[in-house]
Design a protein around this nucleic acid. Structure first.
Length: 426
RNA sequence: GGAGAGGUUCCCGAGUGGUCAAAGGGAACAGACUGUAAAUCUGUCGGCAGAGCCUUCGGAGGUUCAAAUCCUCCCCUCUCCA
C-alpha cells in the first residue's frame, strides 16, 4: 500500500486541520484503516461542495484504506447548525429517506464498493432507536455544556439564536463516531472545516468511553472571491446530478473559474500529478484558458464520465473557440486525445411545433419558454440592453417569430455572452 | 411567566399616514474593456403593459379619501429578568 497518502493530501492542500498528525501518519502507513465521512441527506443530490470529501475518500481508498460513508439519516432529523446562520427548514422523515437514496446512488459512482472495500451506513440505524434517558446517562454525561458553547460552530449561533435540537447535533455526531469506532474499528473521521468541533467532540467521547485514541482531519472550506460558499451560482448550487445541473453547465462552471483559483482547484478536484499541476498553474496568458479547459474536462469526467465530458468540451469549443488549437500545452489529461475535427455538439435544445409558431410566438415568449429569462419585463430589459441575440444578430425590438428565422431548420438564441439555446422546428 | 426590541422586496438594511414599487450596500443580470477570468466603468434590478394598472413590507381583520407606516388579535425571533 502507498504510505504517502497523508502527505499527498497535505501537498494538495486538502488537509486544513488534523489531530496528532504524526501519529495519524504512522497509523495510515502501518495498516489499512477504516475512516469515515458523513453526508447529511438534506437534498436528493450532492453538489460540488461535497466533491472534496468524496475525492479525499477516493485518494484514501486508492491507497488501500477502507472508507465508510455515513448517510446522516438520523442526524438530518436534527440538523447541523455548523456554518449556518439560522435554523434550516426541518426535513420530513420521508424526504430524508428519499434524499438518502439519491445520495447513496451518487456515492457509488465514485467509490469502489466491491468486496466490502467501502461501506455505506445509515446512522439512523442506531440513532433513531435511542432511548432519551438512557442516552443522557451513558453519553450525555460526558459532555460539558461549558465546553460545547465555546465551539466555533455554535458561537455565531449563540448570538442569533440556537435551538436545543440543533445544540444536540454535536452529541449525535460524536456518538456516531463512538459507534463506528466500537463496531467498525473506525479510528479516523474526516469532514469539512466547519465539522472540526463535532469531530473533536467524538474523539473526546471515545477517549472517555473506550480509552482509544482516534483522529480527525478536516478539509478547507472553499469560498469564492466575494466570500460566498463555493459552488453556489445565481442559478443555485452546482449539483452533481445532471438533472439538476446540465453537464454543459457543470463543465462551464469549472471553465469559468477565477485565474487565482486554478492551482487549488486542480489540486483538489483532479487526480493529475502535483508536478504537472505546478507546471500548468504557472502558465500565463492564453495558456491559462487551456488549463481551465483541462480542469473542466477532468472534473466533468470524474463526475459525468468521459463521454459526457468530451461532448461538453466540444460544445463549449464550438461556441467559444479553442484556447489551444495546436495543443501546445502538454498534459497527461485525456483531453489531449480529443480531436476537434468532428464537431458533435449538444446545445441545450427546445423543440417547437409549427402550431406553436403559427399561433404567434414572439421573441420574448421564446426567451421565457427556454428559461433564458424569467419574465417579459426581464426579457425586454435584456433586449434594451443589447444582450439578446437571434442567430448571432442582436435583437433590437420584440417581434413575431417567423418561419424565415429558421436557418437550416433551427435557430439559436442567446442571452448575454454565455447562455444560449437551440430551437428546432418539429 | 414579566419587561423590552424586532419581523421590509434574493441577502443586509433605511423608511413611522400620502412625494413608497419603497433610500443605501451586497449579490445578480446586461453593456463596454478583456482571455468564456479578475478588476474597473455604465446601465438594469416585483409583474403586466409602456407612463397606467396589478401584487408586495410576518399573518388576519379594522380605522382612513389614502397604510410598510395608526388600532385589534394572532404567529415567530432576539435581549434582560424570574
Amino acid at each position: 500500500m502507498s504510505c504517502k497518502v497523508y502527505q499527498e493530501l497535505e501537498e494538495r492542500g486538502l488537509v486544513y486541520q488534523s489531530t496528532n498528525a504524526e501519529s495519524l501518519q504512522k497509523l495510515l502507513q502501518e495498516a489499512p484503516q477504516a475512516f469515515y465521512i458523513g453526508f447529511d441527506p438534506t437534498a436528493d443530490s450532492l453538489h460540488v461542495g461535497s466533491l472534496i470529501p468524496i475525492i479525499v475518500m477516493m485518494h484514501l481508498q486508492k491507497a488501500g484504506h477502507r472508507p465508510i460513508a455515513i448517510l446522516g439519516g438520523g442526524t438530518a432529523m436534527v440538523g447541523d447548525p455548523s456554518g449556518k446562520t439560522e435554523l434550516r427548514q426541518m426535513l420530513t422523515p420521508e424526504k430524508i429517506v428519499e434524499n438518502g437514496k439519491g445520495i447513496a446512488g451518487q456515492l457509488a459512482r465514485f467509490l469502489d464498493f466491491r468486496d466490502d472495500r467501502c461501506r455505506l451506513i445509515n446512522n439512523a440505524d442506531w440513532l433513531s432507536s435511542l432511548k432519551y434517558v438512557d442516552f443522557l446517562r451513558e453519553i450525555g454525561r460526558h459532555f460539558s455544556v461549558n465546553r460545547m458553547i465555546t465551539a466555533e460552530s455554535y458561537k455565531q449561533r449563540l448570538e442569533t439564536g440556537l435551538s436545543f435540537i440543533e445544540f444536540n447535533y454535536m452529541i449525535l455526531q460524536a456518538y456516531d463516531f463512538h459507534v463506528l469506532c466500537k463496531e467498525q474499528q473506525c479510528r479516523i473521521q474526516m469532514g469539512g472545516q466547519d465539522q472540526w468541533g463535532n469531530i473533536v467532540a467524538g474523539i473526546d467521547l471515545i477517549r472517555r468511553t473506550q480509552s482509544v485514541e482516534t483522529y480527525g482531519v478536516t478539509f478547507p472550506l472553499l469560498t469564492t472571491s466575494s466570500g460566498e460558499k463555493f459552488g453556489k451560482t445565481a442559478a443555485g448550487a452546482v449539483w452533481l446530478s445532471s438533472e439538476r445541473t446540465s453537464v454543459l453547465d457543470f463543465y462551464q462552471f469549472w471553465r469559468n473559474c477565477e485565474d487565482s483559483e486554478i492551482r487549488r482547484l486542480l489540486s483538489f478536484f483532479t487526480f493529475l500529478p502535483m508536478p504537472e499541476i505546478t507546471r500548468l498553474s504557472a502558465l500565463q496568458d492564453q495558456a491559462v484558458n487551456r488549463v481551465k479547459e483541462i480542469l473542466a474536462y477532468e472534473v466533468t469526467t470524474l463526475v459525468h464520465g468521459q463521454e459526457a465530458a468530451t461532448t461538453a468540451y466540444k460544445t463549449a469549443i464550438s461556441r467559444f473557440g479553442s484556447a489551444d488549437p495546436e495543443l501546445k500545452v502538454e498534459t497527461s489529461s485525456a483531453i489531449r486525445n480529443i480531436s476537434l475535427a468532428q464537431a458533435e455538439v449538444e446545445l441545450p435544445t427546445l423543440e417547437l411545433s409549427s402550431d406553436q409558431l403559427n399561433t404567434g410566438m414572439t421573441l420574448v415568449d421564446l426567451f421565457i419558454l427556454t428559461g433564458l429569462s424569467k419574465s417579459k419585463s426581464q426579457t425586454r430589459r435584456l433586449i434594451e440592453q443589447g444582450g439578446a441575440y437571434l442567430n448571432e444578430q442582436r435583437i433590437n425590438a420584440d417581434r413575431q417569430l417567423s418561419q424565415a428565422d429558421f436557418k437550416k431548420e433551427k435557430i439559436i438564441i442567446r442571452a448575454g455572452k454565455k447562455r444560449f439555446y437551440q430551437i428546432l422546428l418539429k
